[in-house]
Each structure stands twice: as C-alpha cells, then as structure tokens.
C-alpha cells in the first residue's frame, strides 16, 4: 500500500549522518571538553546553534551556497560534486543540523570525568591521543551511544532542511517525513497514517532506549 523507498532512504540518510558525526563529533567534543581558550564559549555556541535555528534558515542558505550559481557551487561542480538536490547534500545538511546531538552529550561526559584519570595516564607516559582513545572514550560509552542514537533519530525527524534543499526526488531526497507531507497534500491519508505510525513507533523506541541506557549507566555509577 505504501512505497517503502522513503523509509529505506531515511534509514540510509540517518545512518550515514550519524557515522560521519561519530567521526567528526567525538574529536570536536574532546577538543571542547578540554579547551581552556577564550573562544571556547564561541565554539560551544556555534555547535549549539542548530538546536534553536529554524531548519528553513539552514536549508535556505545551504541551497544558495550549493547552487551552481554560487562560487562554492561552481567549485563543487568543478570537482564533480553536486550538493543541491542530492543525497550527499542532504548528508552535509544533516551533519550540521544534528551536530549538537552528538557533540553535547559526549563533551559533557568527557568534562565530567575526573582529571586524575587522565593525569594518571600521562604520568605512565601515555600520549594525549592514546589517553583519549584508551582511557577517556571507554569511560563514556553510554554518552557515545546516546549521542549516536539521538543524532540518528534527529536526522529521521528532519523535515524543513530536506524540503528546502532536496527537491523531492524519489530515492534521492524523498525521505519519510517528506513522503508524509506529500501524501497529506494529495489527500491520501491512509498512506500518511502508515508512514506516521512507523515514525511514531520508531521515535518511541529511540527515546525509550536512551532512557533505559541512562538508567543502566546511573546504576553502574552508583
């Protein structure tokens, strides 16, 4: 009765986005957690901006920036990368949009680790990188999982950005939230209900998982 492609596409977009966020966001969180420079509040503010910024603002400027009419767009075209109306463009947008959901929990967990943990590692002659990788990250596994799950879920829930930047192309940018919007627009409520039911149960499971995870790690800590 419904086209499964939007759901599959949404899953792919969210998985790609959270994988990239894991690679980019964790080092960024590590830097933020230990940074003592004057510009740290500025960096933190920039990271948190997508939380309050309407997605349409981000979508609008990404559309203009990626457009072949802009300088950046021309350069992207010269290296054969198209970011408007493409899956890659949605990934870039989603990474920016979900950045705080990965960075904030990880940075908070890192900065709440006792400093003597790191210092012990340094006195044993381990490098900063080694300490980060083998001492700090294993201690904050719950925060890493929470960040991963939340950025995945937040990407699934993305709408305004995709609407501005995507062009509603089946298999490329028609994600589940856009498919619902479409079906409502053509008055096909049954299909909209099915998509909505899938997304509702997914969101419920995600939030439940994050809550259980938090309880579990609190119990471990106690």
């Amino acid at each position: 009765m419904i086209d499964l492609q939007p759901l599959w596409l949404t899953a792919r977009l969210a998985a790609t986005t959270s994988a990239i966020l894991l690679l980019l966001g964790v080092p960024l969180a590590g830097w933020l957690a230990h940074c003592r420079r004057w510009y740290k509040p500025l960096a933190e503010t920039l990271v948190a901006m997508p939380l309050v910024l309407p997605p349409s603002v981000l979508g609008f400027y990404l559309l203009l920036a990626f457009s072949p009419a802009s300088l950046l767009g021309q350069w992207l075209q010269s290296i054969h990368l198209q970011l408007v109306f493409s899956f890659a463009g949605l990934v870039v947008g989603s990474v920016l949009f979900s950045l705080p959901f990965m960075v904030q929990p990880v940075a908070a967990a890192l900065s709440s680790l006792p400093a003597n943990l790191r210092e012990a590692s340094y006195t044993l002659g381990k490098s900063r990188w080694h300490t980060f990788w083998h001492v700090e990250l294993p201690c904050i596994k719950p925060a890493l999982v929470a960040g991963l799950v939340m950025s995945f879920a937040h990407t699934v829930g993305e709408f305004g950005l995709v609407l501005m930047l995507g062009g509603n192309i089946p298999g490329v940018s028609r994600v589940a939230s856009i498919a619902i919007y479409n079906e409502v627009e053509v008055l096909n409520y049954p299909a909209a209900h099915v998509y909505a039911a899938v997304l509702c149960s997914f969101s419920f499971l995600v939030v439940l998982a994050v809550n259980l995870l938090r309880r579990h790690s609190e119990r471990l800590a106690a």
């Binding site: 203009l64 009419a69 109306f85 062009g167």
Partner: peptide, 21 residues
C-alpha cells in the same frame, strides 16, 4: 534531472536561486 518543488512557487525559487538550470 527533474526536481520537484512543494508548489509552483518553490519550483520558481529553485530556478531563481540558480540551484536548478
């Protein structure tokens, strides 16, 4: 190569911004 605007005004906006040829 088709991209769809949510309505005809968005299709026009895609052309105006240069995002669509």
């Amino acid at each position: 190569r088709l991209v769809q605007g949510d309505n005809i005004a968005q299709a026009a906006q895609f052309v105006d911004s240069g995002a669509a040829q």
